[in-house]
Amino acid sequence: MEKSPDNIPDQHFINLVVKGQDNDPLYFEFRRDWEIKKLLITYCEKKDAQYGTFPFLINGNRFPHIRTPDQLGLKDGDEIIATFYAGGA
């Protein structure tokens, strides 16, 4: 979770929530011009999982993790869904 230092104005940050299947959403304050991958890796670390374990969805779609929240068109309070890789016999 990124804390905003005093010298950076608030419009550089965005509030995002990552919801998994475990009924325990995590809330993030994140730089708008940073790669979203950083946030997703942090989420995976908090969930004791390896990055790459969860497929992440924004508005039901997969997205390139090297984009920033601004490039992805995310708005304040948007949610990212973490589902699971489902294999099947």
Binding site: K19, Q21, D22, N23, P55, L57, G60, I81, T83, F84, A86
Partner: peptide, 10 residues
């Protein structure tokens, strides 16, 4: 992912 999201315990 539609069914995964709908059926998942969110």
């Amino acid at each position: 992912y539609y069914s995964q999201v709908v059926l998942g315990d969110s």
